[in-house]
Simulated assay, not measured.
Amino acid sequence: MMNAVEASERLIELVHENDDIANHAEGCDAETMTAAERDLGVEFPLSYRRLIEEFGTWDVAGEEFLGVYQTPAMGQKLLGSVAETLDARSQYGMPSDLIVTMFDGMGGLVVLDASQADPEGEYPVLVWNPGVSDREGMERLGRNFGSFAFDLCQRAVARWRESG
């Protein structure tokens, strides 16, 4: 079984191999990554960090990930996970140890729970619904971001290719 960072490396390969159905930014430099973690008050797990370094933000076969990026129109504002996490905290009272990584398409936020780091420093992937404070009731999607994202994208690419 591959670890979280290995899964992220496999996902990077998958995105590049399927560039006809994938999009991504140019990556995220160390200075921007540090600013993102400072703004959030929590460090990214290595598997998520690796994907942000490579892509900044990305999508493949319809699966969209927030990542961390900036645009000329928004200037120095950190978009993606940073903006969405800070918005969810201020607007909906999302706990400060959750990091938004994507939307679940049903009103929930796919988050990393930094309060539950494993021995490798990876966080479980959960669904947080605005207004819900009970963590025990949160749906668990994966044990770490790298494995979750790789599995999700691998299935999405297979479905896309089969339907096309």
Rank of each mutant, 00 (worst) to 15 (best):
V100M: 02
G108C: 02
V60R: 02
L14Q: 07
D104Q: 03
R140V: 13
S96V: 02
L78G: 07
M138Q: 01
G56V: 07
P124T: 03
I99C: 04
Y48S: 09
E63N: 08
E53K: 03
M33L: 15
G105M: 05
V111W: 05
G56P: 11
V5P: 05
G41L: 03
N23T: 15
V5C: 06
L109A: 09
W128R: 00
A22V: 02
D29V: 02
W128N: 01
E122R: 04
A114P: 09
R38W: 12
F55W: 10
A30C: 07
L40F: 05
Q116W: 10
D113L: 02
A25T: 12
E122K: 06
A7T: 04
A83C: 05
F65I: 11
L14E: 09
S115A: 15
A83T: 00
S96L: 03
R50N: 15
V132N: 08
S47R: 02
L66S: 10
D19Y: 08
A36R: 00
A36C: 06
S90D: 05
T85A: 08
D59A: 13
E31G: 15
T34E: 07
I21T: 00
W58P: 13
G56I: 09
G108R: 00
M106S: 12
T57W: 15
E9W: 11
D59H: 13
D39Y: 02
V110F: 07
M33V: 12
A114F: 13
G105K: 01
R89Q: 14
E136N: 12
L126Q: 03
E31R: 14
Q76K: 11
P119C: 14
G93Y: 04
G121V: 08
R50G: 10
A7K: 01
L98E: 08
F44N: 01
E120Y: 14
G121A: 00
Y92N: 09
G108K: 00
D39V: 11
R49C: 06
V100P: 12
Q91D: 13
G108Q: 02
V42Q: 08
D118G: 14
E37L: 03
L126C: 04
E120P: 15
E17H: 12
D134R: 01
M33K: 03
I21G: 01
R135S: 11
W58S: 12
C28P: 02
A35L: 08
V15E: 06
E6G: 15
G131L: 04
G105T: 09
E120V: 09
K77C: 04
Q116C: 13
P124I: 05
S115C: 13
L126K: 06
G93H: 00
G62A: 11
G105L: 05
H24V: 13
L78A: 08
N23Y: 15
E6F: 11
G93M: 05
V15R: 00
I52R: 05
E37R: 00
A35I: 06
R10T: 12
P45F: 02
D87K: 01
E13R: 14
A88R: 00
G75Q: 07
M74C: 06
L86W: 05
L11Y: 09
L112G: 13
H16Q: 08
T101G: 13
E9D: 14
P72C: 09
G105N: 09
E64T: 14
